[in-house]
Write a protein that binds this DNA or RNA. Structure first.
Lengths: 258, 258
DNA sequence: CCTAAAAAACTGGTCCGACCAGTTGGCAAT
DNA sequence: ATTGCCAACTGGTCGGACCAGTTTTTTAGG
C-alpha cells in the first residue's frame, strides 16, 4: 500500500476520531513531513486526497483546516460528486430524461392496469389540489406513478437514479420554475394533458406530451440561467467568487491518444 | 485558484466530455503533464484529489482508471440479483436501450467532432473486417464509439451500466444471433446504415436506424426463444468470447486486503 | 524456426532541493 | 504611536532523480 494512502488514513483518523475539531488548523506540510518522516510530496498528496473528500480545506499562505461540515463517511455517491459542480450535467440529465419519461408515458398508456390507473388518478388529484408553491412531492409522485405503470423495472430503476442525481445537482426544477406564473400554468397544462392521454391509452400522445414537458422544463431552466436569474444550486460550491463560469472555457482536447 | 484544482476540474471534464467509460484507462501522469503543460507533481495532486472522491482508481505500474461505479442508489445489488435469472428483464433492458441507443445515435450525428468520426470509422472498419462469428468486442466497440460521440456523459454511463447488466443476464446478442445467416446480414446492414447516417450528420435517420436495430435484435431474440431454439444463457461467469477487463487482479486483491 | 529468458520501455511511488506566492508579525524609521 | 518594510512563516509549483511494479521487445538458447 502506497505511503500516501497510509498518511491519508492516519490523518483521517486523527481528525475523525478525536483531536482536531472542525475549523481547527492542521500542522503545516513541512511540519507533518518531518514528524511523520516522509517527504513533503507525500504529505501534499495525502492532503489533496482529504481535500477531495471534503474533509479539509486549504488556503494559500495560511494553512489547512478541518472542514466545518463533516458528514457521515458513508453517504457519498462517488460519481455524483463529480456531476455536481458541472452545470452542463443538468442539461445532459434532462436530455436523457426527455427520452425516458417519454417512453415511460408511452408504455404506461399501453400497459397500465386498472389499479395502475387508480394510483395515477389519485396522485394526479393530489397534485391538482396541492399548493402550487410546494407541490414538489406531489409532482414527483405523479410522475413516479406513471413510470411504475410502464411495468418496466429497468426503466423505473434508471429514472429513480436520474432523479437522485438531479436532486444532487440542482434544487428540483419545481423550486426554480413554479414561482413563475406563466411557467407554472404551462406545466399544469402538461400534467393534465399527460394524465388524460395515459388514462385513455393514447400511447403516442402520452409519449409526445411527456417529452415536450421535460424539454419545456429544460429550455425554461436554460433560459432562466442565461438571463442571470440564478438557478438555485446546492452542494459544495466554491465560496466567494459568484462567477457562474458555465463551464465552457476549458476545451483543450487532451484526449487524443489512439 | 491553484493550478492543481484547475487540472482536477479539467480532468473531470475530460472524463465527462470525453465520455470516458467506467474502467477506461486515463493517460499516464507523464503524458498528462506534457499535454497540459504542468509538472507531474501537479498531475499527481490532481489525481489524488479525484482518487479521494472515488472517481478514479490507481494501480502501481499499470495506470489510473475511471471507477466502475454506476450512478445509482444503494439498491444496486438487490437489483442485479433480481434481474439475473428473469428472462423478461432482458427485454425490458432492450426496450430501454432502444430509446437510449436511438438518442445516442441522434446526438452523435449532431455533435460528433472530426476525431469522433475518425474513431467511429476505425471501429466500423474493424467490425466489418472481423470474423462474423466472434465479433462481439468489435460490435460493442462500434456502438460504444457512437455513444461516446453523443458527448452526453450521463447517457454514456447509463448505457455502460445497461451493458453490464446485459452481460449478467445473457450472453451478448451477437452470440445468439450471428449464427443465423439472415439475421447476421440484417444486422450488418443496420451497422452500415447507422455508420453512414452518423457520418453524414443525419440525426433523425441515425436515431431511427439505431432504434430499429435494437428493436430488431429484441424481436429476433424473442422469436428465437419462443420457437424453443434456446438462447444461450450464462450465469455469473464470463464466457470465452467477450471478457470485459482485468484478468489478473483477484489474486492481488486478496493479498492486498490488509 | 520457435521458445524462453533477459533487457528495455513503459507505468506509478517516493524523495529532494529549489524557487514562487500569499500571510503574518516584528522591528526600524518616521 | 504609526507607518512601512523585511524576514519568517504558510502553501504552490517545478524539475530531476531514483525505486518499484508491469508490459513489450529483444535476444540468446534449444
Amino acid at each position: 500500500m502506497p505511503i500516501a494512502q497510509e498518511i491519508t488514513y492516519r490523518l483521517e483518523r486523527l481528525i475523525l476520531d478525536g483531536g482536531l475539531a472542525p475549523g481547527q488548523k492542521i500542522p503545516s506540510e513541512r511540519q507533518l513531513a518531518t514528524r511523520l518522516d516522509v517527504s513533503r510530496s507525500i504529505i501534499r498528496e495525502a492532503l489533496h486526497e482529504l481535500q477531495g473528500r471534503g474533509i479539509i480545506e486549504t488556503r494559500h499562505g495560511k494553512g489547512s483546516f478541518v472542514s466545518q461540515i463533516v458528514p457521515g463517511p458513508e453517504d457519498e455517491r462517488p460519481l455524483m460528486q463529480m456531476f455536481s459542480g458541472h452545470p452542463r450535467t443538468l442539461y445532459d440529465l434532462l436530455e436523457v430524461r426527455e427520452q425516458l419519461e417519454g417512453q415511460a408515458a408511452q408504455l404506461a398508456a399501453e400497459r397500465a392496469t386498472r389499479s395502475d390507473l387508480h394510483r395515477i388518478t389519485k396522485a394526479f388529484e393530489r397534485l391538482e389540489a396541492a399548493d402550487p408553491l410546494s407541490n414538489a412531492p406531489a409532482d414527483h409522485a405523479f410522475h413516479q406513478a406513471i413510470v411504475e405503470a410502464s411495468h418496466n423495472p429497468v426503466l423505473v430503476h434508471i429514472l429513480s437514479s436520474l432523479k437522485n442525481l438531479m436532486l444532487l445537482t440542482v434544487q428540483a426544477s419545481v423550486a426554480n420554475l413554479n414561482p413563475k406564473e406563466d411557467l407554472r400554468s404551462q406545466i399544469g397544462k402538461h400534467h393534465r394533458q399527460l394524465y388524460h392521454a395515459v388514462l385513455r391509452g393514447q400511447a403516442r400522445a402520452a409519449q409526445r406530451i411527456a417529452m415536450a414537458h421535460v424539454r419545456y422544463v429544460r429550455e425554461a431552466m436554460q433560459r432562466i440561467e442565461q438571463q442571470g436569474d440564478e438557478v438555485i444550486r446546492m452542494g459544495v460550491s466554491q465560496g466567494t467568487s459568484a462567477k457562474p463560469a458555465t463551464a465552457g472555457e476549458c476545451r483543450k482536447d487532451v484526449a487524443n491518444q489512439e
